[in-house]
Design a binder for these strands. Structure first.
Length: 435
RNA sequence: GUGGCCUUGGUGUAGCGGUAGCACAAGAGUUUGUGGCACUCUUAGCACGGGUUCGAUUCCCGUAGGUCACCCCA
């Protein structure tokens, strides 16, 4: 029986574990997240994006309206929270809608007609986890809202995303671009698709039959074998784009060439969020074991603001999956952010020295010198070993003799030279050596 | 939501129907106040629940988690 009790203590009960698809980010991972966030901050600053933070919870109807009632995200992947007051809230599944909401709610367009915003934070989607797919995951995103409806912004969002990926040294990138048309040409194309598919409905899979009615564009990215033969003669969307849209796409592509960004046109690229219009794009990483899906994706959303009750305002945005980026960096052998070692390691010998060390450490920290210690260790050896492992350049050694002389030893751990200095000159002596 | 595979100390891994080895990591030490190497010792484990069995970590079932595929996406 006592055996059993020990067991119970060791294993955390299932009921207390992290929920499925959600993970702790432990201190060992810090170096990767650090690298990611530093890059994000650097790129945002360079490209003139300002950070915005929106609540984790929003009214569920925000996403229904923005992302679309018919989408998988809204239909089956949202975490819904009912408050005691009767509000229906959702854990945000993405962040473009909240950013657009904030733009309207705070009339950001009034202070400056073009807003360049970026965000970073957790998103939530209730789906089955697998590699690169979690129920709580993190995104970093860039949005430009407002200004004229100019393909230049599409290009700028893409180059920003591209530069961010480069900053992270991510290789083997593949950029896919497509246009899904506008209010004018998309409905026409949808009808053409329906006309094309109608005679074949009985031979199509169940999903496609549903898509036929709800979202004909998705017929294009069905992967069911049954449906493949019919794709060959599908009317090509590029031919059906209205003049405005095809000019828009052409210009975006010209800018890509100008910026020397390689891309591939993919007329089957249809994103699962309804707010997109015209340009849509995704970045993939090619290579073995890189089945993470898109590492970044985005597009233009000219009708989103309007759909949320704002004035008609164009926008373009991109989102990157933080966990996927880190996965790719690891897989491609990138080096994580270096931890900055603390400058000096305080070592004591004996009870009296231990007590006195406390004060010295505080004095150093106030002198803006970072200090580590292992005051709980007693042996000098063990403490030096720790100092070595921490990578501190200097160790301070305080023992009976030093206390008596009112001095302290500064040991250079790189070349093993040490010197005894008066305690009152400690801060300046350290600073001299750290230069 | 459906289906396949997986689950051994902190980490990575052996193993067998009779309760477990190894490596790394961690801690202590190799005499008296000096680290990185080496050596010694120590700590620590069969995901959870049930069944078959004299006995299960090993076989069977279920649950959970992970992973892969479909779907969709970051």
């Amino acid at each position: 029986m006592p055996d059993k009790k020990i067991k119970e203590k060791k294993t955390i009960p299932d009921g207390l574990k992290t929920p499925k698809g959600m993970h702790d980010i432990l201190p060992g991972e810090e170096v990767w997240w650090d690298k990611l966030y530093r890059a994000a901050e650097k790129i945002s600053e360079f490209y003139g994006f300002h950070k915005i933070e929106t609540p984790i919870l929003e009214q569920a109807s925000l996403f229904e309206r923005a992302v679309g009632e018919d989408t998988d995200i809204v239909q089956k992947e949202m975490y819904i929270v009912k408050t005691k007051g009767g509000d229906v809230l959702a854990l945000r599944p993405e962040c473009t809608a909240p950013v657009a909401r904030a733009f309207i709610e705070h009339s950001l367009g009034k202070s400056s007609p073009l807003q360049k915003l970026w965000y970073s934070g957790p998103m939530f989607r209730y789906e089955n986890p697998q590699a690169g797919r979690f129920r709580q995951f993190h995104q970093i995103g860039f949005e430009t809202i407002g200004g004229p409806n100019d393909p230049m912004y599409d290009a700028q969002i893409i180059i920003t995303t591209q530069r961010f990926l480069e900053e992270l040294k991510i290789k083997n990138l593949n950029l896919k671009i497509n246009s899904i048309g506008c209010r004018v040409c998309r409905p026409i194309y949808k009808r053409q698709l329906q006309t094309y598919y109608k005679p074949h409905l009985k031979q199509l899979c169940a999903d496609c039959n549903r898509r036929y009615a709800t979202n004909p564009l998705r017929l294009l990215d069905c992967k069911n074998e049954k449906c493949q033969p019919f794709k060959e003669k599908v009317p090509n969307f590029f031919d059906k784009l209205c003049t405005t849209c095809s000019t828009h796409l052409k210009t975006v592509l010209e800018y890509m060439d100008e910026l020397k960004i390689p891309y591939s046109l993919d007329n089957q690229l249809v994103r699962g969020l309804d707010y997109y219009s015209r340009t849509v794009f995704e970045f993939y990483v090619e290579g073995d074991g890189m089945n993470l899906g898109a590492v970044a994706g985005g597009g233009r959303y000219d009708y989103l603001l309007e759909a949320l009750g704002g004035r008609p305002t164009p926008g373009v945005g991109a989102a990157l999956g933080s966990e996927r980026l880190i996965e790719v960096m690891k897989a491609q052998g990138a080096t994580p952010q270096l931890r900055v070692p603390r400058k000096v390691f305080m070592i004591h010998v004996g009870e009296q020295a231990k007590k006195k060390s406390l004060g010295i450490i505080e004095e150093l920290r106030r002198g803006n010198i970072s200090v580590t210690e292992a005051l709980s260790r007693e042996s000098l050896k063990a403490q030096l070993k720790m100092a070595d492992r921490e990578g501190a350049p200097l160790a301070l050694i305080l023992g009976q003799k030093e206390i008596f002389e009112n001095s302290i030893i500064i040991r250079d751990l790189k070349n093993s030279l040490q010197e005894n200095v008066p305690l009152e000159r400690l801060v300046e002596e350290i600073k001299k050596r750290l230069k």
